[in-house]
Design a protein around this nucleic acid. Structure first.
Lengths: 226, 226
DNA sequence: ACGATGACTCGTGCGACGTACGAGTCATCG
DNA sequence: CGATGACTCGTACGTCGCACGAGTCATCGT
């Protein structure tokens, strides 16, 4: 019931009334500062690492002060997620449609991997303006490329599914070396039950970027207008 | 440091020592009973709905008794997840490879949608035997279909990504009608910013099953050996 | 027949968590 | 000068996972 979006509170006349009691006098709270700090915290500690108490600590404020600027913790997640998914456009003009689609999706994946918590968050929160912008761009590109109108939506969802699956998997699997060692041990121990994937070293391939590009190539082959 | 896997405790000789003090005398705790009840609870209340207290309540036991049979709460998730992802094989023998792949993946998706919490859990937990079995089967099928050895792993990860993305998205988006109404409202309010996806009604299509099959068709087209 | 052992259950307590509530502080304006 | 509204914050409540240690009971070696 609160949460103004308040650009900047205006004091300025009597700053001297703050007798520098704190060595580093924090700037006043604001939605932007909260969101930026939340992103920092999420990057550093993951989804479970973001608590309102820690967020307030980093901001040098009390916990309940945050609730003046945001509705609740879910709101913080939504704002942080959206702030991270901006698309700045292709590097130069005049690409072919495949190049453009690949660039949008690789940039999307890269943004989410830079903030791994965002990948697991995106599917379960509302679509913010930045994601809608990306979908709009994809839609226009595919249409212009000659994909039949009846196929465009299915094509977009295929691409969405592919990026989400790839990124969530990638972001979830780069845990500790212990886990990696344990997984390898388990697999070789069970190699007689899973001979094919053991032989092809399916679970040991670390070229995630290459696999992403190759698989996307397959999908675009299937999507190309005949 | 505990947690035997104990098939079944053997009493039997002197059951009469239990003087039916409880109208419904619960069977003793066991790993299987805990996992089955955890699945029930997860189905009913979702990931956040599973707490050790509620689980113990449903089992008619104390909270700490659970910790004799499982290591911790994560262990409960792992066991519940694995118990839900069994594959029973294709309905009849002798399908073409496309039919077999489609069946594995549709069954996979269906299993996860029957237990929506499993989709979001799978990518961030270790791969259990049932998932490995599915990957083994896919690997064999693709090889037999003539997919080049160098492409098989990329192909499998494409399929994995696609199923995971599709299922996680589907499982996360069937929330309340309020959300759906709010989303539609938001979209039409912003229709001038996103004209293409508004016109194609991208976000309003509810034929998830059809979209899954169509998109999978695109991907398999791209994977077919030339 | 008896004491030891181990399987299993459970109550209490600790330190987190999100956030409702209400009491503060302070600049601004009539 | 008194009121208003923007903003901050301390306290409190109910919930969570789980560590710890004290129980109960069947079984077995002697």
């Amino acid at each position: 019931m609160a949460a103004k979006r308040s650009g900047r509170s205006k004091r300025g006349i009597n700053e001297r009334l703050q007798p520098l009691q704190e060595p580093r006098s924090e700037p006043p709270l604001s939605r932007e500062r909260i969101v930026a700090t939340a992103v920092e915290l999420l990057d550093a500690q993951g989804v479970d690492g973001l608590t309102m108490r820690r967020l307030a600590d980093r901001l040098g404020s009390g916990v309940m002060s945050l609730y003046w600027h945001v509705d609740n913790k879910e709101d913080v997640f939504d704002l942080a997620l959206d702030s991270v998914l901006e698309y700045r456009g292709p590097p130069q003009i005049a690409q072919d449609w495949r190049g453009e689609v690949v660039h949008v999706l690789e940039d999307w994946r890269a943004s989410m991997l830079r903030h791994p918590w965002s990948a697991t968050l995106l599917p379960r929160r509302a679509l913010g303006p930045n994601i809608l912008g990306r979908l709009e761009l994809l839609s226009k590109t595919l249409s212009r490329a000659g994909v039949a109108d009846a196929d465009v939506n299915a094509a977009i969802w295929s691409l969405w599914n592919y990026v989400m699956g790839a990124t969530i998997t990638r972001a979830s699997f780069d845990l500790s070396d212990d886990d990696r060692a344990a997984a390898q041990q388990r697999l070789t121990r069970l190699s007689e039950r899973y001979p094919t994937i053991e032989r092809s070293r399916l679970l040991l391939d670390n070229d995630w970027d290459g696999a992403f590009k190759n698989g996307l190539g397959f999908l675009l082959d299937g999507l190309s207008p005949k």
